[in-house]
Amino acid sequence: MSRAALLVLADGRFPAGGHAHSGGAEAAVKAGRITGADSLESFCRGRLHTAGLVSSALAASAVLGVDPRLLDEAADARTPSPALRTAARKLGRQLMRAARASWPSTELDALAREFPKGAHQPVVLGLAARAAGLEAVDAAYCAAYESVSGPSSATVRLLSLDPFDATGVLARLSPELDRIADRALEAARRVADEGVDALPSASAPLLEIGAEAHAAWPVRLFAS
C-alpha cells in the first residue's frame, strides 16, 4: 500500500464535490448559531461527535469488507432528513467518479452499478480507500476530518471568517479527531463480527432540522 494515497483522498482539491456543501454550516449561520470562531468550533465539535462518528465508522467498516449494501441501508436509517440522504448520495456519486478514475477497482465498479444515483458518501469513501490500498483507520480519519473541514471552510466564505481562525479550529479539534477515529475503528471491527447494528448512531437534532430548513430556501450558496 501507499500511505500517501490518504493525502490524495483527503485533499480538499480531490475532485469529489465536497466544496459545494457546508455540512450544515450555512443553515447554522443563517439561524445565528454560528457567528465566529468560537461558535464554529462548538458546531464542528458537535458534528464530529455525531454525524462525524457515524460516517467514520461506516467508512472504516467498508474498508474491512462489510457488505456495502448493508452499510448503505444502515446509513439511511441513521439519516432521518431526506435532504441529508440526498446530499450524501450526490456526494457519494461524485466521489465514485473521482475514485474510479484514481484507483480502478471491480468493487467500486460493482457499487456504482448497484447505486446509479449514488451510495452514501462514507460507504463510497471506505471502498475508495480499500481500492487505494489504505487501511480502515485511514478511512476513519478521512471521514472524521471531512465532517469538520467542510463546515470550517464554508464558514470562511459565509462569514468572511479569517482563514487562520478557521484553521485554528481544526487544529484544536485534532485530539478529539483522534478519539473519534479510534472509536469508529473499534465499532467497525465489531460490525465485521456482529453486523451493522454495532455501528454508532449518534444524532444531532439541529443538523437534521437545519438541513430541512436549508433545503427549502429558494437561494443558497451551498447545496447542503
Binding site: A28, F43, R45, G46, L48, H49, L53, P205, L206
Partner: peptide, 16 residues
C-alpha cells in the same frame, strides 16, 4: 460527548 449543547446539536434548547 463534546458539542451536545452547541449549535449543531441542541444550542441551549432544554426540551427535545
Amino acid at each position: 460527548p463534546g458539542g451536545w449543547d452547541g449549535p449543531a446539536v441542541l444550542a441551549g434548547h432544554r426540551a427535545v
